[in-house]
């Protein structure tokens, strides 16, 4: 084998081939690789974001739960308080109502008693006059003596 210009010719061809590869073959390959890299990076990013979101949401949910519990406890306490208040009020009302009723009854009884007493007095006066009439066997002029009789009756 001789070393000759053939080697030169092959070198030219090789150089052109390398240039061709660099120009037309390499760029699409590297682009595909970069795209893959980008996609993976985006995927990892999204996964990380999702995880962060998840933990955030969990925290939020826990907080909401806590707040709700507190609120419900508060509401319960308030309800209890107002219930006792209502019961107290009702008791108070019942007592005063009862007292009022008792007082009214007492007053009515008194009134009735007074009326009965008045009636009795009037009847007693009439009876006294009748008795006196019969005793005197004359008629007492009720008009002339009514003042006297009334005075008597009021003294009863």
């Amino acid at each position: 084998m001789n070393i000759n210009l053939t080697l030169f010719g092959q070198t030219i061809a090789f150089a052109i081939f390398v240039w061709f590869t660099m120009k037309f073959v390499w760029p699409p390959v590297t682009r595909a690789m970069q795209e893959r890299q980008k996609k993976i990076a985006e995927g990892l990013d999204a996964a990380g974001r999702a995880q962060r979101d998840l933990s955030l949401a969990q925290e939020k949910a826990a907080q909401t739960l806590r707040e709700t519990k507190e609120q419900s406890a508060q509401i319960l306490e308030q309800a209890n308080k107002s219930a006792t208040l209502i019961v107290e009020e009702a008791k108070e009302q019942a007592r005063s109502e009862g007292e009022r009723l008792i007082a009214a009854a007492k007053a009515e009884i008194e009134q009735e008693m007074n009326r009965a007493r008045d009636q009795l007095r009037a009847q007693v006066a009439a009876l006294a006059i009748k008795g006196a009439e019969q005793i005197l066997e004359s008629e007492v002029d009720s008009a002339a003596h009514s003042e006297l009789v009334n005075k008597l009756a009021s003294q009863l």
Binding site: T6, F8, G9, Q10, I12, A13, F14, I16, F17, F20
Partner: peptide
């Protein structure tokens, strides 16, 4: 066989053949 050609025309056949081998 391509290498047997005169050195100044080798590239004309060698390059397409090499590209074909991609």
């Amino acid at each position: 066989l391509i290498a047997l050609l005169p050195f100044y025309v080798q590239w004309a056949l060698n390059v397409p053949w090499a590209i074909f081998h991609i």
